[in-house]
Structure formats: C-alpha cells, structure tokens
Design a protein around this nucleic acid. Structure first.
Lengths: 207, 207
DNA sequence: TAGATTGTTAATCGATTAACAATC
DNA sequence: TAGATTGTTAATCGATTAACAATC
C-alpha cells in the first residue's frame, strides 16, 4: 500500500463499478458525478473526491465515459485479475458461497473446498470435491489459491487463519465472528454478519 | 432514534457484547477497558467513549462487571427481544441463512421462508415450508415477522423491499447488491458481500 | 458565448486520541 | 496511601461538504 486511502473510499469504489456496469448495459455512454450520485445516494462531490484519489478520469463540462471509467475502476480494484478462492469450512454458509454466482462476474472463482468433518470430505459441492483440511498446503500450491475464505465456527477460525497464512494465500476473507490475528502483509476482510443484524436490532429498538 | 450515535459506535457494540460473553464463559467477573481493548484491537479510550454514549457502566479504579455490562449492551442492542425473521429468496444464500445457528444465540429466529420459484415453494428448509412470495402479507401478519431478509437477485430486490415495507415488517436486512429505497422509518442494513471481496482484491493488488 | 461539469482547494464536521480529574 | 481505572473534556486527526477556477 503506497498512499493511504480511506476504507470508506475503497468501499465505495465497488458501488461505482457496479453502477457503471448497469449504465453500460443501458448503452449510456457518458455520465456525470451528479447522475451517478443520484443512483447511489452519494453526493457528487464525494464521488469526484473519491475518483480524484486515483487520477483524472473525467472531462470538464462533459462527465465521465462510462466504459472507460468502469475499466479504470476494475483495474484499481484488481478485478481484471482472476482470483482463485479456497473455502475452508463447508457448512451451510461455505456451501452457499461455493455456489454464489455473483463472484464469477467479478473475476473470482472457487477452486477448492476444505473441511475437517469426515462426513463432508469427499462429497461434491457445485462440482468441487471437498478435501480434508490437512491437505491445505498441498492444495493451495497445486490449485494456485489466492484467497482463503474462512467459514468455520469462531473457535476454529484462528487456527484456520494460521494454516492459510502458512500455506501462502495472499488474502483472507473471514466470515467467522471473531477477531483474527494475521500478519499485516496479508489483507484480511471480516464479513461478520452478526454485526449488521445486531445493528438492525439496535435501530429497531430505538424509536 | 433520539440521540445521534455514530454508525461506527453501533458496529462496535456487538463486538463488545460478544467478547463479554466469552469472558463470562471463562468465569471472569470483572474486566477493564484495557483488557477488552487488547482482545479486540480497539483502544481502551475508544471503548470507554463508546460506552459513555449510553451511560456509566463501570467503576473507577476497578473496571466493568462482565455480566452486568453484557446485559446492559444486550438491552441497548435490543438483543433481549425475540426477533422473528422472514427470508425472501430461498437460493443458496437464503437457505444458508435459514440454517445459520449463530442467529439463535443472539435472539433471532427464522419463522418464514418465501420464494417466487414454483420448484422451491412447498419444499422444506430446516423444518420450515417455503411459501409463495404472493402470500407475504398474510405470513408477516400471521407469523408476526419483524425483519425481512432479502436474498433475491439484485433486479428483484427493490420489488421485494416494497412488498416487505407494505407488509409491515419493522426492519430489512438486505443481501442483494443494490441500493434500496425504503422509508426512513424502516431501518435497513445492507450486507453486500461483493464490497468486501472487491476491497480484498484491491488490497491484494496494491503492494 | 453560456451552460455544464470536472478537479482541487478551503471550510466544516465528526470521530478518534490524548489528557486528566475523580474515585475505587 | 499508592495504584488502577473510569468518565469526560480538550486536542487532534481525518473525512465530508462547500466553493470555485478551469475548461469542454
């Protein structure tokens, strides 16, 4: 990471990207920050500021070329690379992610599934055979896994994270509701569903 | 919503709550903001500030009573209520959420499943029969549904959101990767998995 | 040209961090 | 008492919003 760019900005880029895709589908060649902002409920100033972090992508008095900006954002986000995922923990959530189609359109594909449960190991999910978690190292190397997805219970998550780091994955996507310690060199994104649900409960409780 | 409390604070409360539960399991009666912070990688000042938003829960020179603070947080977050969920869209993700055990321990239970697909309607998932989405109103009333969970494709999400609002749910938990418009009186939490995954891709791309 | 819209600088707002008095 | 730790005020930092010159 060279420049320090805010998490908030990074999290908005995928929204811009997604919306530009839709504009492209609608054969709209040019959009302004104003139109884009209206679609996403984000101020045009915010959008211009976010984009300005990475360069000058628009034309004054005109707006942004939809296709061009979309491609630029894809490059910034690394969505042109073909990321390979291994899911550790093939329970309901892990299984659902193995089948999740939205990832493919962003350049991600699930190439390996691992579990500790002997009853699950050997079964097929979405055409992929579930391997024993002890084979993680071997599989990460052989299948050129980039990203480890953690969908095991909280108590086992740190152990799995350690295994993933040792195996050489480049990033970790964690669904276990627990704080993980991984080296600062390995990007880690936490997808803690209980936070959102608790927040919802909070807002429903206040009146 | 009376006082305006930052989203960041609200999102940290579930972390405190969860960690206090673990401390309670470990039979630890008292903790300091320092210990809690070390466990979560959050500064003790931040924790004290967050808690101070809601009252005075600690004892100077001593720390916080684990059980007491846990209960106070549960009350603030509304986790003592028994929230009833209806999941609209019983695909892989919806099905996984229907089976997700972590919710139960937070006071949430899935009471209804709905889908538009005739092949899915009538099947059982985790002991719940999938109903046709046209019966939404009836089911929300009969089963006293509080929260509508949206796990349908993006293009259908706004329509489902409108149906849910009309049916009288008190909150919406949206997994569809799209911006939803709902009345400001209905809390809406977006759980957009593609944002986290794209952010991970971004960080893995920067070196 | 007049109108539209970007990119960027300056102003504001809000959240985090630091400091410390109160007190157990 | 001395040491520990909270609750709260003040200082800092960072993100958003406003303003506007540049320019298509």
């Amino acid at each position: 990471m060279k420049k320090m760019i805010s998490q908030a900005t990074i999290d908005r880029l995928p929204l811009y990207f997604r919306t530009l895709r839709l504009f492209e589908d609608e054969k709209i060649p040019i959009i302004s920050s104003d139109e884009l902002g209206r679609r996403l409920d984000i101020t045009p100033e915010q959008i211009r500021k976010d984009l300005a972090t990475f360069g000058q992508f628009g034309r004054k008095g005109i707006g942004y070329d939809v296709h061009d900006l979309k491609e630029k954002l894809a490059n910034i986000l690394g969505l042109h690379k073909h990321w390979r995922l291994a899911i550790v923990g093939v329970g309901h959530l892990g299984g659902a992610l193995a089948n999740y189609v939205n990832f493919a359109s962003l350049g991600f594909s699930v190439v390996a599934l691992l579990d500790i449960n002997k009853k699950v190991v050997g079964t097929q999910v979405n055409g992929i055979k579930v391997a024993d978690v002890t084979r993680l190292n071997e599989i990460v190397a052989k299948d050129e896994v980039d990203i480890g997805v953690i969908t095991v219970p909280a108590q086992e998550a740190q152990g799995v994270a350690d295994l993933l780091v040792a195996s050489g994955v480049k990033g970790i996507w964690n669904f276990a509701p627990t704080k993980l310690n991984v080296p600062a060199t390995i990007p880690l994104i936490n997808e803690d569903l209980s936070i959102g649900l608790s927040a919802l409960s909070y807002y429903m409780t206040q009146e």
